[in-house]
Design a protein around this nucleic acid. Structure first.
Length: 113
DNA sequence: CGACTGACTCTCT
DNA sequence: CAGAGAGCCAGTC
């Protein structure tokens, strides 16, 4: 069911720690939905406010923000990342430096599929 | 059911 | 490193 997939995506994004970022595809993989990066983007847009899903910590695989440079959304995302201590330069984040590399044991512990 | 549209990604130039 | 093309897949009309 699609809603169940959204829930898994939200749960997975909730695992991304402040100060780190992950790609749509990476989240899809971790959520058990390989190849559905686009679904992650949709799920983030529909995420209930009260879940407090850190949507802004998710970017494209290239490190680029998914929103157009200088758009209101991109500016907002950049500000939130900045508050996390993540540097955004020219609408892009250095994945080598801020990319999230989750520990397998931690994932298995927090994610109960 | 077919066509179109993305908060995507990979490959090739 | 930017851009084009193709593959991808759920939603919408």
């Amino acid at each position: 069911m699609t809603h169940a997939n959204y829930q898994r995506i939200w749960d997975t994004v909730l695992l991304v720690p402040a100060g780190r970022v992950a790609s749509y595809g990476q989240i899809a993989d971790l959520a058990g939905l390989p190849g559905r990066a686009r679904l992650v983007g949709r799920a983030l847009g529909l995420a209930p406010e009260d879940l407090a899903v850190p949507w802004y910590r998710i970017l494209r695989a290239s490190g680029q923000l998914a929103f157009a440079p200088r758009s209101a959304e991109a500016e907002r995302q950049a500000r939130l990342l900045d508050e996390d201590g993540v540097e955004v330069v020219r609408n892009r984040v250095d994945l080598q430096r801020y990319g999230w590399r989750p520990d397998l044991a931690e994932l298995l512990f927090r994610l109960k599929y």
